[in-house]
Design a protein around this nucleic acid. Structure first.
Lengths: 211, 211, 211, 211
DNA sequence: CATGAATGAGGCTTCATTCAT
DNA sequence: CATGAATGAAGCCTCATTCAT
């Protein structure tokens, strides 16, 4: 086979990209090194020049997602805090941005969200670390919004977190499964609508408390 | 080993139970036939007397979940329609029931929800069938509630479906991961609260419409 | 391939025998599982039904040697002590017996002696254990012979041990390498001759002591 | 890495030295090119500029030993023949010298003696050549000593050769394995003692002869 | 029906060697 | 001369499935 020499970083990126596609398409367990090197167009040994094992490559993929996510979160944060008189409407922009981020990295999203509940003993550590990181990010945002009274303070922040992540996952994964692209603005509208006024027609429902 | 003879149905149930535990603990790919037969206390060949392959056993597990789910859904439906003057508060009961169902079948729930986004080429068909079945069930309920004006009619039913499934999944999987049991009544309260009045303090946010 | 079912012990013995031949012919590192199963006429998986790894099979081979050796040593010992008025001529018989034992298990001897100085980090433990066992056996014999004054007491027992093992190894390995069978009685005669009278014609040589 | 340019001979020596250390520490099979170049501090390609293969490097190591051995043997021979009225005590000096030579080249000795019985198909040729060379050297010496009646002529020269090489190997390898340095003079004394008077207390043992 | 030994395809990883720079 | 990225054959091991008893 023709021998193409690249510098370490480029080759590594190339392999990570192939790995993302393969892991997204077949899942960590089913994906084989053969799949990855075939997609990257490299020899078997070349893979091991950059990663010590399949697991390490998977870690690199997760790391890549984490970096992208962190970068986005940073941008978010600076903007949010840079404008202290945050209009609640800012929330809507965030939703669009977050959904857009996930949908423009479909394979990565598939990998990270697919294992959302995975307890596959192997890649647990790395994976949980990322999930925790994401949840902490939104938990902070929620607490902040409660502090500045954009969000009602009488709601359990964890429940709100579940709402945020659960709805996101559903929306995004459905779009990915279908290969479609939802109208993010419309989704955000629906969402904000729910958050603002609820969805029940009458004020019915609920005990007053656990009493 | 002593050779214990059981009738086909009993033996099959025994194996399915072992399979549920094993698939929940290790995931479909990592779980091995050895794990299953060890847990069921049977010989290797016996497994293949009842299932033609590992995948078929997994299908049986999903079928089992589906049966339980269908039974529950039936009970639900009859009750709902048996009481035509549906109080909106009925919704709350349904939430508690649904969450309770999932949490009292933790291993099954783990299996079904863990692969929520799985695109593992193999068990895709069976799995999607079940998910679709669940989503259709709730979609019907949502449409009904919109018809009888318990739910606002201007909201996208699919979005509401996402809210329902997404939040459920998050709440349930977190509890399962932690091995804890949340106060379902309290969760339902929070949820109804959200649905009734929203969570935003001010009426801010959102475009008027896509118009 | 035709499927021949054997009981565990028989199959295991069969594999060990194949392993002995292969390890003797190619050495531990060069020998492959493929070599062993080809020689045993079994499938790859069958090998792993009986041994967890190549190393474990090698251990079994060494164990086999050790058992044979121990059995021989036991027979030796009982005879020696059963006849307290041991004629020094008994020593000669022992030499013949020991050489004969090694030469009638050529492959095993090749394996054990070949690595005589091996420091191959892997199978060191097991191997050293066997060597130590053999050396201790002869050390005990030497001490005993010194006690009953068959051997001069002013000689370093360790040096005598070196003489015994060194000469044995040379004689045996040469025969094995050549595929020949030396006249053991003649070798023993030479040996006894050396031990009895030395080989130097005159009484020359050596400092009196380290002074 | 900085590119250090050396003349061919120097570089080659440098690599051989690294190879000696590595082969001694890990054995031919386990030692890798990576080990050697790491120790030599050179690039992978540089190794193949000087040796066509791993085996060729091993050959070079054996050649190096052979050269050292030959040089020593030459010195020995000239001295021996330069002093025609050989005192039998000269033998003792030779023993000390030979043991000393081996012990001051421990890594090489380990490599050469470790494989004493090796039948590793690959490096057999080269290895046997060296062993034969060493054995011929001592065989010549033995025959000479028999001719001048220092050694009894009725003993099989080959057996004496085995005694010589076997005891040497045992003594030397034990010292190397322990990392200790025996008192060579004392060892030589024991040895000469054995050769001169034997070790048996009484004149017992042995058939008269094969006659 | 039940058993468990046997099978072999296929996966992961190593490492001697090559070659573009 | 020197470098080190690239190659791919070959080795070890696992495990779903089969089948003789």
């Amino acid at each position: 086979m023709k021998r193409q020499i690249l510098d370490k970083a480029t080759r590594r990126r190339q392999i990570v990209e192939a790995a993302i596609a393969v892991f997204a398409a077949r899942g960590y367990r089913v994906a084989s090194i053969s799949d990855i090197i075939a997609r990257a167009g490299i020899a078997r040994g070349t893979f091991y020049l950059h990663f010590q094992s399949k697991e390490e490559a998977f870690d690199a993929v997760l790391d890549h997602f984490h970096e992208l996510f962190t970068a986005m979160a940073e941008r978010e944060k600076s903007r949010r805090y840079g404008n202290p008189v945050a209009l609640p409407g800012r929330l809507r922009e965030s939703l669009v941005e977050w959904l857009g981020f996930l949908l423009s990295n479909r394979d990565l999203t598939k990998i990270v969200f697919r294992q959302a509940a995975a307890v596959d003993p192997d890649y647990e550590r790395k994976y949980l670390q990322i999930v925790r990181s994401m949840q902490e990010h939104s938990a902070r945002a929620i607490r902040f919004l409660q502090t500045i009274k954009v969000l009602r303070a009488d709601l359990d922040p964890q429940f709100l977190n579940h709402v945020f992540h659960g709805v996101t996952a559903q929306v995004v994964l459905q779009a990915i499964a279908e290969g479609s692209t939802p109208d993010l603005e419309a989704v955000a509208d629906q969402w904000i609508n729910l958050l603002r006024s609820g969805v029940l027609r009458t004020g019915a429902g609920g005990r007053k408390a656990k009493s």
